[in-house]
C-alpha cells in the first residue's frame, strides 16, 4: 500500500490505516525508538504511542512524507520518555553518548542559556546538512536522527568505523561554527 493510500485511510478514520502504517514503517520506527531508549519493551510502548499520535494528527495534517512524519513523531515520543528517565537519573547507554557528542556542537557557554525553538533549530541544521556532501549528511542523519551506533553505520556504508567517527567529528565541528554564526541572530 502506498503512502497516499495510507493517508487516505487515516482521513477516512479507518483503523486499517494504523495497521498499514505499522506494516510499512513499524520496523524503522521501532529501530529509532530502540536506539534512543535502549529497551525493546519501552520502544514498543513508544511506537504504540506514536501511532496513536499519528492517528490524532491525520487529519488535519497531510504529510508530504509519511515516513519522515511517523519517524519524527516516534523520535519525539522516545525523547520525551528519555527526558523523563533522565529526570529520574536513569540515564546511560547510547543516548548519553549521543548527547555528549552533540554537546560539542554548542558554540560557547554563552549559548547555553539561549532558548531556540526546536523547529527553528531543525531548520538551521537542515540548512547545514543540505550544504554538506550527500554521504556526510546521511552519516550525520543516521547517527543523530536515527540514533544508530557507529558500528552499524560503518557496516551499512562500507566505511571503517574510524572513518565514520572522523566524519562525525568534522561535521560536529562545522555545525558548531555554523550555529555560532547563525545563532547570533536568533
Amino acid at each position: 500500500m502506498t503512502d497516499e493510500e495510507i493517508i487516505r485511510l487515516f482521513g477516512e478514520r479507518s483503523e486499517r490505516a494504523i495497521a498499514e502504517a505499522q506494516r510499512r514503517y513499524g520496523g524503522l520506527c521501532r529501530r529509532v525508538a530502540v536506539n534512543v531508549l535502549g529497551s525493546a519493551e519501552d520502544a514498543e510502548e513508544c511506537l504504540n504511542d506514536a501511532l496513536y499520535a499519528v492517528w490524532n494528527a491525520i487529519p488535519p495534517e497531510c504529510p508530504q512524507s509519511l515516513c519522515a512524519f511517523i519517524a519524527r513523531i516516534t523520535r519525539n515520543h522516545a525523547l520525551t520518555r528519555l527526558k523523563a528517565r533522565r529526570r529520574q537519573k536513569r540515564g546511560g547507554g547510547e543516548p548519553e553518548v549521543l548527547l555528549s557528542e552533540l554537546g560539542e556542537c554548542v558554540p560557547t557557554e554563552d549559548f547555553a542559556d539561549k532558548l531556540i525553538d526546536g523547529q527553528h533549530l531543525g531548520e538551521l541544521i537542515s540548512g547545514f546538512l543540505n550544504a554538506q556532501s550527500e554521504v556526510n549528511a546521511a552519516v550525520f542523519t543516521e547517527r543523530y536522527f536515527h540514533c544508530r551506533p557507529i558500528a552499524e553505520i560503518a557496516r551499512e556504508s562500507g566505511f571503517s568505523q574510524s572513518k565514520v567517527t572522523s566524519i562525525l567529528h568534522r561535521m560536529r565541528e562545522k555545525l558548531r561554527r555554523e550555529l555560532a554564526e547563525k545563532g547570533e541572530f536568533i
Binding site: 515516513c67 519524527r72 523520535r75 558554540p107 531556540i116 523547529q119 541544521i125 537542515s126 543540505n130 550555529l179
Partner: peptide, 19 residues
C-alpha cells in the same frame, strides 16, 4: 542551546534527509 536542544532540533530536519 544545549546538547538536548540540538538533539531535539535534529527531530525537525528536512523530510528528505530523513528519508
Amino acid at each position: 542551546m544545549t546538547a538536548e536542544s540540538i538533539f531535539e532540533g535534529v527531530s525537525y530536519i528536512d523530510d528528505a534527509l530523513i528519508e
